[in-house]
Structures are given as C-alpha cells and as structure tokens.
Nucleic acid binder design. Sequence first.
DNA 1: ATACTAGACTCAGTTTTTCTAGGCCTAGAA
DNA 2: TTCTAGGCCTAGAAAAACTGAGTCTAGTAT
Lengths: 296, 296
Amino acid sequence: MSVTPPRPKGPPLNALRAFEAAARLGGFRLASAELNVTPGAIAQHVKFLEAWCGGLLFERLPVGVQLTPLGTSILPDFVAAFDALAAASHKLRMNAAPNRVSVTALPSIAQLWLGPLLPKIREELPGISISVTAMEAPPNLAREPFDLSIFFSSEADKSADLQLPQDELVPVCSPEIARRISTLADLQDLSCLSDQMWPGDWTEWLKSIDPRAGYSVSGPSYSLYGLAVNEALNGAGVLIGHLSLVNRYLLTGELVAPFPQRAKTAHRLTIYRSAQARSKIIRRLLDILKRFAKNL
Amino acid sequence: MSVTPPRPKGPPLNALRAFEAAARLGGFRLASAELNVTPGAIAQHVKFLEAWCGGLLFERLPVGVQLTPLGTSILPDFVAAFDALAAASHKLRMNAAPNRVSVTALPSIAQLWLGPLLPKIREELPGISISVTAMEAPPNLAREPFDLSIFFSSEADKSADLQLPQDELVPVCSPEIARRISTLADLQDLSCLSDQMWPGDWTEWLKSIDPRAGYSVSGPSYSLYGLAVNEALNGAGVLIGHLSLVNRYLLTGELVAPFPQRAKTAHRLTIYRSAQARSKIIRRLLDILKRFAKNL
DNA sequence: ATACTAGACTCAGTTTTTCTAGGCCTAGAA
DNA sequence: TTCTAGGCCTAGAAAAACTGAGTCTAGTAT
C-alpha cells in the first residue's frame, strides 16, 4: 500500500499513435515506416495498448495483421483525434513564424527544379525562409509538418494545387557529345546515363521511337538524378532526360537533345499544400511557382 | 551527412500534452498536479515546445505564467484535440470490456456510502466489474479514464447525474455512550471525534444549535472518516456525523444520535458520469444507486 | 524593513520508457 | 524445397522524462 495510491493512468500517447498508424495503414511495417521506427517498436506499443484496454486490437495473421471489430470500432475516432492534433501543431508552428515555409520534394525535384527557383523566390518574397527536405516518397501532409510537397504523380489530380502536364523523356548530352551522334545506333557506343530510380527510362524512350527494333543501351546509373545531370554536363555521356528537370539546361544550351523525339511518361510534377497552409505567403509562393513552371 | 537525413519531426506528444494542461489550467504547478509530475517536468516540456516552434508560448511572470497571444491562438485547438483523444481512449476501454465500470470517489464516500452498496449492485448486475479509486478531489472526467465520480459538491448542479439533498451534521455515538449524554455540556467531558478534512464540523453544528453559547469540544481527529466512524462504533466517543455517510448505522441502531438537532451543510453528494459513459450498464448502475440513495 | 511564500527556472543525476538488433516463426510464392 | 514478407520476442542500448535541490522574483504578512 503506497501512500499516494497509483491511480489508473490513461494510455501512453505514443502507444495510441502507433496503433492509429498501424490500423490506418493496415500493418505494423507500414506504420513503422511512417513513424520512423522498427516494426518491433510498433508491435510493442500495440501489445501494451491491448493489455491496457484488455482486448485484442489486431488479429495476427501468418503474414500481416488485421483489425479486429474492436479495433475497427475506434479507429475513426483516433484518426480524427490525431488529425486534429497534427493540425494544431502545424498551426502552432505557422503562427509562431508565419514567414517560414517548409517544402518536401523528391531529391531530383528539389535539386533540379526547385533549387534554381529559390533565389528568384527569395527575391520576390523577401523575408521568407524556405526549408527544403528531400525524401523518396510523398509524406502524409495531414501528419507531417510540411507546407508543400512536390513529387511526381502518375495520375491527374484536380485537387492538386499545381500540376504540370505529363513529363516527357528525351536524351540529352553536352554539345560536344552531340556532335558524335547522328543515328540511334550511335547510342550503343556511348555511355547512356540513367537514374537508379527510373531504370526503365531508356527502354521506354527507345520503344516509343521504334517498338520493334531491339535497341538497347548501357551505361552508368546514379542514385541521384542531379548527379547524372552533372555528369551529362561534364560530357560523360548521354542522359535520358526528364524534360521537367532538364529543360532549363536545354534552354540555356548547356545540354542539347541529339534526337528530337520525345516520349510522354505517366509522371506529372505535382504540388500539394497541407490543409493548414492557407496563408497568404503560401498562396503567393504557389503563384510564383506556377509562373516559373510555365516558363520552363 | 547521414545516409538517411533526419527529417523534421513533429513535436513530441507529451510536450503538447504538458502545454495543453498548463495553458488550460493557467499554470505549471496546476498542470503538474493534473499530470502527476513535478512542475520542473512541465517547464522542460514547454521549453522544448517553444524551441520546436520557435516562439514563446508563455510569458514568465515573477509568480506564475501567462499565455502569450501565440499560446492563446492555438490553445482551443489543442484542448479539442486532447479531448477527442481522451474520448477515443475511453471508448476503446469501454468497447473492449463493456461490463467494466470504474468509479472514483472521495475516500469517505467510497468506504461508507459506496462500499456497502457494492454487494447489492453485484447482485442486481451480475457480471459487472466495478473498480473503485479513492481520491481527494474530483478528476476531470473528460480526461481521466473514469466512468463515474462521486464527491461532495457545495453547489446544486442540474447537470449532475445524481445529486442528493444538502447533507446534514448530527452527532452520533454508540448506544452505550449515548446513555451518558443528556445535555450539550456533557459533550465537553467526552472525546468528540472529527475528520481532519472537515475540522469545522463540530463548531458548525454547535453554532446551529445556539449561535451565542461559546461551546467548544475537543477530541481526536482522523484523516480517514471511515476510521472515525469505526472508532465511534467502538465507543471511542461522539463523532460529528455526516448524515449521508452515517445514516446507515443510525438505521441499524449501531449508532444513535444523542441530540435530535441537525445542521444543514452546503455539501451535496453528487455523482457525475463521463461523457463517454452512456452505455446501458452505466444507466442501470445509476438507477440502482438512485434507488439505494433514497432508502438511506 | 524583513521575512515568508508562491511559482517558475536550471542542472545534474536517475529512473523510466522506448527503441533496436537479431533470432525465431508461419504460410504463401517462386 | 527454399525464399520472403510480416510479426513476435528478448536482451541490451539509447533516449526521454522525471526528480530534487538550489535560485530567483515580487507580492504579502509581520
């Protein structure tokens, strides 16, 4: 008997968050990715929560888990509560520093599309402070503290705040290299640069030119598209270019396109803003991006 | 440069909770009481949160703190979010075990009023599992995981789920002791038991009998009213009885009231239920309590 | 004036919580 | 059959949270 008896405590907030993520995403592994922890951590949180409430939240299948009726019955409440919490946190951050904007983008987009625009943005919106975070997959804007996300999406989406037309593939290289190219066959003697994230780009472009010819090319691949572009600028070979990312260099002449044919891809550069990001600054920033995007 | 760059993280949930409590209650000390930690812990959480968002949440006054406009601007959002979270947690617990009811009450009420009713309740609601937590002050039912709270309130409140009439004071003692009492003056030769939480009870009762007579009594006091009642049953002296708590013993004759005069107090035994506790079980439990309360 | 008090701050050290690593297990796919 | 995806478990490590004790400030009481 302790002097101050331990009164029943509410559940740990982190366990609730782990459950919510696992239930919403349908698995511990996905939840662990969203929360940046290992799946074991999620498992422990959920187990604790199950002990706390005295009921099973998930059925454990041989592979994966499935929400029990109990879990299903309260999931919407938790989703709503954590949405509200995330929204409040976001609002707090914005109210504290209205001129701070945080953007997340695919690494290649951050470096090749957004990066060059930043000086012009700073010029038009003096006092603004933009932080850029590169990541591989678009985050859940309702949860992560970003104002804007810029990624490639394979679908048209009217709800996007800005969406460019379908991206196009076109080989690009330095002018010197271009002089040595006249036919498709010439490509086979050259380094054909590509990005590790889009390994099918060359094949896709070649197919769009002549579906039956069995052309194939080879060359180094890079985990960062920006690196590949740099190598192309340095004359390392022919890069399969994503027009939205390399057009700026075509316009300046630093890179040229030895073949005029372009292959439409499914990808559209797409910008979303967080539901909280309704401020005037964000609106003006979007306007600027829109304008620059047109000139690209 | 780490391989997986640390992406900006959302604020720690516990820091948000600390801020919410401090802001809602208007001070770190109060918040620390609600969350069962020391004030220093709250201070650290708030400080962290201020660093995270880059703005001051509280103005530090020489004594106490005051919300800044920034803090004020987001407080309602956080209150709503944590309310939703607590409601969801409560619902989870109830859905997991619908027959479990948790009650919080003043120690004296738990022991003397509720305790004797529990066997009868179990009889009428077989299968129900009631846990009782004694505490000194009524908790915030919107936050703490209780279904019912039973405390004395000094005001009439129509929103209460059950409220008894104003409590009355009346001296009580064992029949043996009563035989030795015939006038007020006899009290001065006897041990007059009282509760440490209500040290003014005897004075209040004496005043209601004869406001001018300077009667005063003395005797041991107890930190647990239940203990004082037991002592009275054992013939240790005359206890200043709260009718709602000792009437059961008057009815059985184990205790008697040597003086017929009763003094009305401001206190009413008051029962609230949590907003989440809308189940049939709780309703039936309240009905039973109501019925028993009438017969007391 | 002088002490006292309430409330908050800080910092070091400790306790508690949370996370990871790595091995195990199961069933469906190759 | 082997491989793989997804979870489970446990020990130990890492991080977060909390405490305790000493400071500080300005009202309040003496």
